[in-house]
């Protein structure tokens, strides 16, 4: 008997604090697996965000720093430029990356910083309690959009992968989901590639993960998977938006 699947070494033993069914934990595990498989565990330095993943530094076994809201790519830039041998990742949510940190992510991509960005898009502010995010869907109810997001009042959702794909410096952009085993496997491949690109020195890589937030969507974990499939995917189609590292 051998163990064929277990918690990766790149994660600590600390149980995660996320709500039941939340996608963050799945993504943490995929990152841990990617780091293990690439054998870069002793070279990784991570940037934890403000938001639900604020305590991510407890879950990853590597050295980590806690950043201010939105500033992950700038902090990762400072680390990578000072320690080019390190494999640096910035882990960010949608409010963090697509709202307050929009300038930081766009310019890190434009400079093609050699960093790996894992972007969790769950279309809502989680930690603060369900406010409208830049990625909140049209019609989606949030505490600051009680009648649902009205584009005439609150504008339209922001599609980060599509937007960043206009930048020459963005070398790898893929949108994945973690709503089913198949999609989790694809997400794993993408996340691994985003780290591998940094090992190979390809340039800025970002994986956008459509992730479920049962708590703030007000649904049970199973229904949250449905929401990802039926509501989020039409607005945020899965796929590779940029892959300049490919042969």
């Amino acid at each position: 008997m051998t163990i064929i699947a277990q918690k990766p070494h790149s994660l600590t033993d600390v149980p995660m604090h996320y709500c039941p069914g939340c996608g963050h934990g799945i993504v943490h595990r995929l990152m841990g697996e990617a780091i293990d498989e690439l054998n870069i565990g002793d070279k990784v330095i991570g940037v934890a965000p403000v938001g639900c993943a604020v305590f991510a530094d407890s879950y990853f076994a590597c050295d980590m720093i806690q950043g201010a809201h939105g500033r992950g790519p700038a902090i990762a830039t400072g680390i990578k430029r000072s320690k080019p041998e390190a494999i640096v990742f910035s882990y960010q949510g949608d409010g963090d990356l697509a709202s307050i940190g929009m300038a930081e992510i766009v310019h890190a991509a434009a400079r093609s910083e050699h960093i790996t960005v894992i972007f969790i898009n769950n279309a809502i502010y989680g930690m603060t309690g369900g406010q409208m995010a830049p990625t909140t869907l049209v019609g989606q109810v949030a505490t600051t959009a009680p009648k649902g997001r009205d584009p005439l009042l609150q504008g339209w959702p922001i599609n980060i992968c599509e937007m960043l794909s206009a930048l020459k410096g963005a070398k790898y952009l893929e949108r994945v989901a973690v709503d089913s085993p198949q999609h989790v496997m694809a997400a794993k491949k993408a996340i691994k590639k985003a780290f591998e690109n940094q090992v190979k020195g390809i340039g800025f890589s970002l994986v956008e993960v459509l992730s479920q937030c049962p708590t703030n969507w007000g649904v049970d974990p199973l229904k949250s998977l449905e929401f990802v499939r039926t509501k989020m995917m039409p607005q945020y189609p899965l796929g590779v938006f940029k892959d300049e590292g490919a042969e």
């Binding site: 700038a74 830039t77 400072g78 680390i79 430029r81 300038a103």
Partner: peptide, 25 residues
Amino acid sequence: AFVQAESEVSAINMVYGSASTGTRA
């Protein structure tokens, strides 16, 4: 390393990242 940042906010956060590695930033 020299980086012209996109804003002062970014610049100080780059310093935060660099300083965290023990670099004189």
